[in-house]
Amino acid sequence: MLQVEDLHAGYGASEVLTGTTLTVKQGTLVALIGANGAGKTTTMRAISGGIKPSRGKVILDGQEVQGLDASRIASLGLAHSPEGRKVFGPLSVEDNLLLGAYSRLPRFFGYHAQAKPDLDRVYDLFPRLRDRARQSAGTLSGGEQQMLAIGRALMARPKVMLLDEPSMGLAPVIVQEVFRTIRRLKEEGITLLLVEQFAKSALEVADYAYVMERGRIAVEGTPAELGRNERVLAAYLG
């Protein structure tokens, strides 16, 4: 569903990604782990168009999308829940969700009726969001904002969802809740690419995983395989 080949990208003169290659098959959950600054978030941003790759390919459902604007890539079926959640603080929870489905809703009127089934689905998944539908998103707690960010990405009915550091800055109890949610998304058959600093938790839910070092993939394999890899154990699971 999502293929990344030999991706190079960076900020200004410094190249952060030096040839990343990975594949996410339909209906699977793939984890991307690695140290801070290894290039995980940059990979995500280069895939979703936040930065333009200088070399390499990103193939979404058979179509090359590298170099397109982020908004174009999003409307082609890629939803990216960014690091730090980035909910629209001044807007209400429901508006945040509606905007998640922006690319397939009418621009002026009647959008609410059309988005109703998806809204209900997200509210069923996160009942707490339904209670706070009218509240502005900035007033939610960190955990609720993370739920909203995931819900917003779901609204797009994406072909692939990128989840960047969903546990960042959350208390351990909430982190566990986030991971339960991710498990549920996986059960619903959503194709997911997950970046996570809690390597172990990520490996527990993943079907396949990549370990990044210095802008490229250093090791890959099923969680079981990685669990047997001395280097991975020492560097990321200790």
Partner: peptide
């Protein structure tokens, strides 16, 4: 680790 340490990885690897 995000969770209380569990004795084993899914693949049955050595304890961490």
């Amino acid at each position: 680790l995000g969770q209380p340490p569990q004795p084993e990885l899914p693949g049955g690897a050595e304890p961490l």
